[in-house]
């Protein structure tokens, strides 16, 4: 079976720093593939390369078998590859509904329509409302997006990406900055999406990773040091040394996968 996403030998350097160092990984359709690694491991650079916000110096990216290495970011979204941001990237002065409507609009094709007000366009509003209800922001539609609580902004962040009707989600630390309670809600939300979307999940939160991921790739200094099922990763000596580190972390993660 063709992989949903495959990176082959990606290299990206910024001056003397090689943020992505001959990186290869593949994500099978339907799975959640997590990428973990310490700060500065090049996780966000990887998302930027895969989403087309940056061009790799070398290597290839295949999406559903097709080469998208040279494809511009908007075209990748049209092909079904959507991303979310680690640092919340929403349209703060738009309402929650308008944020999602814009994605629906983008999905429907070009926006060279100059006359009809979008506020009367049910073909945009209805799908947007429906999606917001699904992600649990149904009673927030008319609020200014910038006024939402932080956790809700993170949900909106993902709703904006979902509204482009992707087949593949690149999630850059969806739990970033969240408290434990909010994180739990987000984990439940992502788990509900599992199966409908293939996901590459960049994450710091070990609980989340071991609960959600089918496979885990560990990145250190832009290099893959291990890749495999959660159990293998947990027991991999190199990973434990480089990242999971002390026994504390391992202990904390111990109960995670049990209820996965």
């Amino acid at each position: 079976m063709t992989d949903a996403l495959e990176a082959q030998g990606l290299i990206k350097a910024f001056g003397g720093l090689t943020a992505t160092d001959n990186l290869s990984l593949s994500v099978a359709p339907g799975e959640i593939h997590a990428v973990i690694g310490p700060n500065g491991a090049g996780k966000t650079t990887l998302v930027n390369l895969l989403s087309g916000m940056m061009r790799p110096d070398a290597g290839r990216i295949l999406f559903n078998g097709g080469d998208i290495t040279r494809m511009a970011a908007p075209a990748r979204v049209k092909a079904g590859l959507a991303r979310s941001y680690q640092i919340t990237s929403i349209f703060r002065d738009f309402t929650v509904l308008e944020n999602v409507m814009l994605s629906v609009q983008a999905r429907q094709g070009h926006s060279f329509r100059f006359w009809k007000p979008v506020s009367r366009d049910t073909s945009l509003m209805d799908p947007a409302r429906e999606l917001l209800a699904q992600v649990g922001l149904g009673d927030r539609v008319d609020m200014r997006a910038g006024d939402l609580a932080y956790g809700e902004q993170r949900q909106l962040e993902i709703a904006i990406s979902l509204a482009t009707e992707p087949s593949f989600l690149l999630l850059d630390e969806p739990m970033a900055g969240m408290g434990p309670e909010e994180s739990q809600k987000m984990i439940a939300f992502l788990r509900a999406l599992k199966g409908d979307y293939t996901m590459l999940l960049i994450e710091h939160d070990m609980d989340a990773v071991f609960v959600l991921a089918d496979r885990i790739t560990v990145l250190v200094y832009g290099k893959v040091i291990a890749s495999g099922a959660p159990e293998e990763i947990r027991n991999d000596p190199a990973v434990r040394e480089a990242y999971l580190g002390d026994d504390d972390t391992e202990h904390e993660n111990g109960e995670g996968p049990a209820d996965a």
Binding site: A73, Y85, S89, F91, F94, Q105, S111, F112
Partner: peptide
């Protein structure tokens, strides 16, 4: 309009519109 929405969105967050 749809056109204007894209314009205003691009003003506040161009990368997000691309993505």
């Amino acid at each position: 309009s749809r056109f204007g929405t894209v314009m205003r969105a691009a003003k506040s967050n161009d990368t997000r519109v691309q993505s």
